[in-house]
Write a protein that binds this DNA or RNA. Structure first.
Length: 473
DNA sequence: TTTATTTTATG
DNA sequence: ATAAAATAA
């Protein structure tokens, strides 16, 4: 019997895992391995929150493999050396893995594939992360899409039903091999901020499946409207599970299409599928425009007059001390939980890039380090979208008004109150814009009396800055 | 996945 | 006088 390495990366599941399936179908004995080599993802190596999730997720995968008679071998990078060593130890003749789409990872994997082929080792890569490969969806001219709506129209029409394969009940036994521990590879932070951060989550495939069931049972029926309200669980909150491949997008599509929905719920289902579409679109853009992690997707913005880097403003934004309650609530939710509601991500990002006019890369870097679902494709395209430098088909310069957004999406101020206890004594009506309330300084002495930037003036300044690049060239 | 302003409708 | 709808950016 031949042996194959099953190289896990961000596909930390056993169901609908094409690399695993292919290795089994080929009749190999399978040696599952995870190689810890974060520096190979530079300049976007995983952030602190992401590493905490990864540690928990690896434990979950390891347990799932053990239950099936296998085990997860943990090794330290460099990846090429770790895999070579394991090939020698096991006599493996093949390596199977699932593809990723970040530029640094693509380059490393391509080099590895060449290396293995030269060594006479079969190297097989598969698609586990996306509904469609980034190169499968193209315009009539054969070019990549730059606008979401036509991209999704095209991709949506190609969606097929059908349940992806379940996890195998048993896996071949693994010979005795040395393995690192998760603790050694990903030491717990001190102090243990990871514990409260992960308290609301259950990393791993079982937690992901449970999350999906809860969403389909409860939230999806009101998704279109409730998804925008940050004070409740109106979204699926599957993003960290998707990022680490603990659940596959095909599984999500199969699960939601596998149920019969009342006609009134169908538009909600469609809206949620469209969110998966945004995820596909982000990966499509990152694959075709790999420089977009650091450079404007729209080069017209290369002349945009950003304000000079302002460390005080950046610090206030990061820590939730800007004096704009909905912005501060979001930033504190992020710091405490490693997560931020999508509506609030958009408006905090708008505040940083439009009102403070700080370059979007500063925000992208902070989110990258603090989000448990930090994903290079989604993070990059999300920031570029809000900054106006990315793929946004809107014919205007999008500037969110955080006060209007708070009134519309947190009308009962429940979200803001949860994260800003220093506003407890303020009446509801004053929480949207405390600086307009005569008594705010007395009732909320620990909160900034004024926002760090005037909302109306900074909006006008942002529009004026935008006018300058509109008229240029 | 917006906002601010203007126009129109309603009482 | 106020709100809803339309519109421009």
């Amino acid at each position: 019997m031949t042996t194959a390495l099953l190289w896990f990366r961000r596909d930390l599941r056993l169901d609908d895992n094409p690399a695993l399936q292919a290795a089994l179908d080929a009749g190999h004995r399978i040696v599952p391995v995870y190689v810890h080599a974060p520096d190979e993802e530079a300049p976007w190596m995983p952030g602190a929150a992401s590493r905490a999730w990864l540690a928990a997720s690896l434990r979950a995968l390891s347990a799932a493999l053990r239950e099936r008679g296998s085990m997860l071998v943990l090794r330290r990078g460099p990846t090429e050396r770790a895999l070579e060593t394991l090939i020698e130890e096991t006599g493996a003749s093949a390596v199977y893995w699932n593809r990723l789409y970040e530029p640094a990872v693509i380059a490393r994997d391509a080099a590895l594939k060449t290396h293995f082929k030269q060594r006479g080792i079969d190297a097989h890569s598969h698609n586990a992360a996306l509904l469609f490969e980034p190169w499968e969806i193209e315009t009539g001219q054969g070019t990549p899409y730059r606008v979401f709506t036509p991209f999704w129209r095209n991709a949506r029409a190609r969606l097929r039903d059908g349940a992806p394969p379940a996890a195998p009940a048993r896996l071949p036994a693994v010979p005795h091999l040395a393995s690192e521990t998760v603790d050694a590879l990903l030491p717990a932070p001190r102090p243990r901020w990871d514990r409260p951060m992960l308290a609301d989550w259950r990393p791993g495939a079982a937690g992901a499946a449970e999350m999906l069931e809860v969403f389909l049972d409860d939230a999806v029926a009101h998704y279109k409207t409730q998804r925008d309200l940050p004070d409740r669980v109106g979204t699926s909150r599957l993003s960290p599970h998707l990022h680490f491949g603990e659940i596959s997008p095909r599984r999500l599509v199969a699960a939601i299409q596998g149920r019969t929905w009342p006609a009134a719920v169908e538009p909600h289902v469609e809206t949620w599928l469209k969110e998966l579409g945004w995820r596909e679109f982000s990966h499509h853009l990152l694959y075709h425009f790999p420089a977009s992690t650091d450079a404007n997707l729209n080069p017209r913005f290369d002349d945009f007059p950003w304000a000079p880097r302002d460390n005080d403003a950046l610090e206030a934004w990061c820590r939730g001390r800007t004096g704009v309650p909905i912005v501060d609530a979001g930033m504190r939710e992020l710091w405490a939980t490693g997560f931020m509601h999508n509506r609030v991500r958009m408006l905090t990002a708008s505040f940083l890039t439009k009102n403070l006019r700080q370059h979007w890369i500063h925000g992208a870097r902070w989110f990258w380090d603090t989000l448990v679902d930090a994903d290079l494709a989604n993070n990059t395209q999300g920031w570029q979208w809000t900054a106006g430098t990315g793929a946004d088909a809107a014919p205007y310069f999008r500037i969110f008004n955080p006060v209007t957004q708070a009134r519309r999406f947190d009308p009962d101020v429940r979200y803001v109150r949860r994260w800003l206890p220093e506003l407890d004594a303020l009446p509801d009506a004053a929480v949207f814009a405390p600086w307009e309330h005569a008594d705010a300084a007395r009732l909320a002495p620990d909160y900034p009396a004024q926002p760090i930037v005037d909302l109306a003036q900074s909006r006008d300044a942002a529009l004026a800055a935008h006018d300058r690049i509109k008229t240029a060239r």
